[in-house]
Amino acid sequence: MSLILAIESSCDETAVAILRDGREVLASLVASQIDLHRKFGGVVPEVACRAHMEVLLPLVDEALAKAGVQPEELSAVASTNRPGLIGALLVGLSGAKGLAFAWDKPLITVNHIEGHIAAAQFSCPEMTCPYIALVVSGGHTNIFLVSGQGKYESLAQTLDDAAGEAFDKAAKLLDLGFPGGPAISKAAVNGNPKAYPWLNTCLPKDGENFSFSGLKTAVLYAARGQKAGRKGPLLLDEQGVNDAAASFQYAVVRALVKRTVAAAKQAGVKWIALGGGVAANGELRETMAAEGKKIGCQVAIPPMNLCTDNAVMIAVRAQELYESGAFDELSVSAVARCI
């Protein structure tokens, strides 16, 4: 029997979870900082770091109380240490180091992206390797071939902006607010997804990767004209905004599904896993499930609360690392980006 306490603080959520054997969630807490960030239209890193620091230890205490676990009963302390905002990562990692040292427990560091993939495996235990995983969030847009536990091969990625970042920037250009994902989806319900032919801007000629920078420019031109720039007045009426939002969402979702399904077909796998904040997008979930089915693939999609950043996924991946004895020294550092 093992008990792992995991911390996630790579971007704007501080989260703590305690899992038994990587399967049973005894506590899962997320202290959302979204309200702090909303007025800035994005994550302001210094705000993020300060807020992580304020809530981390109270969150750990609450998780222990909720799980009815004493620190001495824990098997290990885990934390995300890459990739993400460096200051934000350092708060969670340093906290985990301090706790591991004070409680005399082993420390396990987890790759945030591998955590998102683990969330799909956790939500859908019948999924077997090999499978194709699409991780899509504010900072990442990656397709992996997962050939076994801990065996990830990167097949494709964005060549410029991440899909989630594109959602945030497009929402800002359309005066729809932050976070961009839910705001765009809401406006898209009443819009025409064929109003603007934007899909091809997301599909670079290499036939493998993604590009969302051209799409962002297309939204800028549609919303504010070619000359005025992002500070120019919004040229669209309500219906126009809805149409732009729907066309934007259609382009992103179709591009993600097209590349992922092609990768699954190429690799000859039977499963597709989705992860990351953008996987909370209803349109993406439905389209991926439908298109996957056409090539005989089942699609593993975590529930909404395990798509957005959480610590359960970190604990699940940490459990695998715990079982293989992959512990870290207290000198381990945080890494903003994995090259």
Binding site: V43, P45, L85, D161, A336, R337
Partner: peptide
């Protein structure tokens, strides 16, 4: 050789 992607999210990217 690695693709240079937007550092908006992580603020800083480093390439050898």
């Amino acid at each position: 050789d690695t693709p240079v992607t937007s550092p908006t999210f992580v603020l800083h990217c480093q390439y050898p």
